[in-house]
């Protein structure tokens, strides 16, 4: 790591590396915090699994089909577990509120006078968070997947793996860009902190984290299939589980990339417009 730092000392990337590593150090200083966080993060999964079990059980007793939305109970468990992987990429907690706070409290000046791009700074900063998250997650995820190996009825093909990896990249991009955009609303609206919770809840719902999108009433899921939020959870899971038909894999990715492009353009635009406003008002 030290060697890498030295050789890239002059590259533009170096400063972002320093940001990334400083941030990571900060996080690691609180060891207990992370260990607890990593373990307890799985608590909701536990309730989720048992609730679904009770639901499937209820169906069995009343003689209904054992499939819900084309998924067996085992599929449902796998879906909810994989959701952690997907959300581990797409959720960037604190981004919205940090950006809006920087804007609202005039802290943006601090960054504007430094030779760094604020949005890239945020990306690096969050990436650092993710790095620590995955560092710890690598200790917790494998045992859990091992424990559940019998639930996996489908072993993904090489092609599905590849598509899955790409979809994770889309997940992070959409999550990051979306949160930045919401945070940047602070350029125009003074107090958005309460509103952020509403947005997060909607994200929680529309990403399929609460309920797989295909179980929702038809009029809802038709719409949500094409919305960007599914890429933050639903699509990566379904791709790896082999629930997306082969001929649809590429179209799904294409729609995802389309959203990334749209969000990227939108966020650049918001940033430029917002900054104009920011400096006009005087920060």
């Amino acid at each position: 790591m030290i060697a890498a730092t030295k050789t890239s000392a002059n590259s533009a990337f170096h400063k972002y590396w320093v940001i990334l590593s400083t941030r990571t150090q900060e996080d690691m200083a609180y060891r207990a915090n992370y260990v607890f966080g990593a373990i307890f993060r799985f608590l909701p999964l536990v309730t989720m699994i048992f609730l679904w079990w009770a639901v499937y059980n209820g169906r069995k007793e009343s003689g209904a089909s054992p499939l819900i939305g084309g998924m067996t109970y085992e599929d449902m468990v796998v879906y909810n577990t994989l959701m952690y992987v997907a959300r581990g990429f797409s959720s960037v907690p604190g981004t919205m509120s940090d950006i809006s706070k920087d804007i609202k409290d005039g802290l943006l000046n601090r960054y504007l006078i430094k030779p760094i791009n604020y949005l890239w700074y945020q990306v690096m900063y969050r990436l650092a968070h993710k790095l620590v998250f995955w560092y710890i997650a690598l200790l917790t995820f494998p045992p859990i997947f091992l424990l559940m190996r019998n639930y996996f009825s489908h072993w993904p093909t090489l092609w599905e793996w590849a598509v899955f990896v790409v979809s994770l990249f889309i997940a992070f991009s959409i999550g990051m860009l979306f949160c930045s955009m919401v945070g940047m609303l602070a350029f125009w609206f003074l107090e958005i902190s309460g509103f952020l919770f509403v947005v997060m809840m909607l994200e929680f719902f529309m990403s399929g984290q609460l309920i797989p999108l295909n179980i929702l009433p038809v009029y809802l899921h038709r719409f949500l299939f094409y919305a960007p939020f599914g890429y933050e959870g639903y699509w990566p899971c379904m791709i790896l589980m082999g629930k997306v038909p082969q001929d649809q894999l590429v179209p799904v990715l294409l729609v995802g990339f389309l959203w990334v492009a749209v969000f990227y353009g939108l966020s650049r635009w918001m940033w430029n417009m917002g900054l104009k406003r920011y400096s006009a008002v005087g920060g």
Binding site: I2, T24, Q25
Partner: peptide, 13 residues
């Protein structure tokens, strides 16, 4: 006591 740098932080874990 914290050693400097990222390596130090990891070690601190």
């Amino acid at each position: 006591k914290r050693l400097p740098g990222l390596g130090g932080a990891v070690q601190g874990l």
